[in-house]
Amino acid sequence: MVTQTEIKKMLENGTSQVPHGEVYIVEERCKGCGLCIAFCPKHVLVQSDRINEKGYHPPELVEVPPTDICIGCGMCERICPDFAIFVKTDKDKEKKRD
């Protein structure tokens, strides 16, 4: 796995081959269990202060890019028990355009 430092370097050099992901959430389904936060290998998620309509705190993105950046691994999506969070990678977007 690529280290944080390497990612930072690659991003600075503009030589990044690291896939980039965008995180999405169906917020009303989130129960704030925090598994996506705990299991994100890049630590890009934190609990937000906001509460959704069921009274849970959904996750949000950390404020410190570019090191803590989503690489679209999909861990949050697979570990989420509530079908609430998912990621789209560049690949997905390309697929969409096709």
Partner: peptide, 15 residues
């Protein structure tokens, strides 16, 4: 949302 509690593994298994 389903009836399962926050953090319940059932949703992960179903997914």
């Amino acid at each position: 949302p389903h009836v399962w509690c926050p953090g319940c593994g059932l949703g992960i298994a179903l997914g």
